[in-house]
Write a protein that binds this DNA or RNA. Structure first.
Length: 436
RNA sequence: GUCCCCGUCGUCUAGCGGUCUAGGAUCCCGGUCUUUCAAGCCGGAGGCGGGGGUUCGAAUCCCCCCGGGGACACCA
């Protein structure tokens, strides 16, 4: 298919939500797959509801998702053209003026057939439609009209959009017909539903693309997830951007609406965390540590590149989002750790001495690698005649402030000698005091 | 209400007349490993909405019903 040209045409009345993002993604993938052009067109003809902030947010969302556009337009910049075409329709007699607005005259009888690339042949009875406004009394064009003029002028070959636009298609077809223009091919993709099976919207909770970024999702994961909502390629679940471009086409798009299941998104995010380049992940982790208020940027920098990298590598094994990773990274910083409620049970008074012995042994180490740490601790334990199990959870909770963490020796090594020894001594002292 | 679309495990889906006692993924439940929790591995539960046809044969084709969703603006 040569010279494919498609567009994403959001109205800037709010943030970009995941449904819109999926439409943008399908268009983008289609364009990239066919080596065509992906156009971003802001449909801001409703001046009372459109905002600059929304436009910025939409662009930022698309950029974050990696959906780059080849051309950019603003519908309001083309208003003279819209008026001119409306005037032409008026003169031609297919449109008429009433109460200041220009209306399109709908055929009173017959039917209109849409040959949809996904849905197949869909027939509408013309009598179902009423005349509709193409130019408002304030002189601005309405959606169905501006859309047609722009899609034609911009040379769109395919219109890939949400199912909810299906019954706008006959109206647009009539306008193409009245103007003697060749309409593009239409492809209506199924909707994304919330858990209650109604069209996904803000009342379903987090639906803004940028909200997913804030919550610590990777764009790779969201793109992968969105692509699989309504599209498939055999049994494959995990797709890189390159694979999506290679495999995506309209024949893989399904016909039934899909429920947005966050549990699966979380799984995919975890998968992508595990696949992300460690240096890149370390940078991201640093950002989220600051975002979550775990530590300041200066404190993160003081940590050093290699520790941050190591932390990212360990933390991604058992956390599904960057936010969770950041929160689990608190123990890296030389701040007092709030202990979990279970700590009271884990830190038994008789552990005071072993904790002090371990602290002393660790303090004496020059090398603080996980291997050295392990050797030192096992040595102490052997002298004490205690199994590792007897102290593991206590040490873990004291060093990390959590009952769940990466491997004990890894975590000790990563926390650094100073932090570890101080925390063990403090805990040991408190346990002793409790006995008295 | 009218028009349009849709209907395979809870969810995302494979399936495009026989290879389906319906496959994968997620979620859930066991087991294994173990310093915790994950991950990994092993195992389990869970579905073709219903009824008629067509056919030697239907999850796959047709019809009806039921169910769900979407659209019915001088919003997009």
């Amino acid at each position: 298919m040569g010279n494919v040209r498609v567009r994403f045409a959001p109205s800037p009345t709010g943030y970009l939500h995941v449904g819109g993002a999926r439409t943008a993604l399908f268009n983008w993938l289609f364009a990239r797959h066919h080596k065509g052009a992906f156009i971003l067109r802001i449909e801001d003809t409703d001046r009372t509801r459109s905002t600059e902030e929304a436009i910025d947010q939409i662009k930022e969302s698309l950029r974050w998702l990696g959906l780059d556009w080849d051309e950019y337009y603003r519908q309001t910049d083309r208003i003279d053209r819209h008026r001119g075409v409306a005037q032409f329709l008026l003169e031609k007699g297919v449109a008429y003026e009433s109460e200041g607005a220009i209306w399109f005259r709908v055929p009173r009888s017959g039917s209109t057939v849409v040959e949809d690339l996904i849905l197949g042949r869909v027939e509408f009875s013309n009598s179902e439609f009423k005349d509709f406004v193409i130019l408002r009394s304030d002189g601005t064009p309405t959606y169905n009209f501006a859309c047609v003029v722009d899609d034609h002028d911009m040379g769109m070959t395919h219109v890939i959009r949400g199912d909810e636009h299906m019954n706008n298609t006959p109206k647009q077809l009539w306008i193409y017909g009245a103007l003697g223009w060749e309409p593009p091919a239409f492809a209506h993709i199924p909707l994304i539903l919330g858990p209650d099976r109604t069209k996904l919207s803000k009342r379903h909770g987090a639906v803004s693309v940028l909200e997913y970024r804030r919550r610590g999702f990777l764009p790779e994961a969201l793109v992968n997830f969105l692509a699989r909502l309504g599209w498939s390629h055999g049994d494959q679940e995990i797709f890189s951007r390159e694979e999506l471009i290679r495999y995506f086409d309209l024949d893989g798009v399904g016909t039934s609406a899909a429920v947005f299941d966050e549990a699966k998104l979380l799984w995919l995010n975890h998968e992508w965390l595990k696949r992300t380049d460690l240096d890149k992940l370390a940078d991201l982790l640093a950002e989220y540590i600051v975002q979550e208020g775990i530590a300041t940027r200066e404190e993160v920098e003081a940590l050093g590149r290699s520790r941050l990298r190591r932390a990212a590598g360990l933390l991604r094994e058992r956390n599904k989002t960057l936010v969770d990773m950041a929160r689990a990274a608190r123990f890296l910083f030389p701040r007092p750790l709030p202990l979990p409620p279970e700590a009271g049970e884990i830190l038994r008074p008789e552990l005071a001495a072993p904790l002090e012995r371990i602290a002393a042994a660790l303090e004496a180490l020059d090398d603080f690698s996980p291997e050295t740490v392990e050797r030192a601790i096992r040595e102490v334990l052997a002298e004490l005649g205690l199994p590792l199990k007897a102290v593991a959870q206590a040490v873990r909770v004291v060093v990390t402030g959590r009952t769940v963490s990466p491997g004990l020796f890894d975590v000790i090594s990563l926390a650094g000698k100073e932090n570890v020894v101080r925390r063990l001594r403090t805990a040991s002292r408190e346990l002793q005091d409790r006995v008295k």
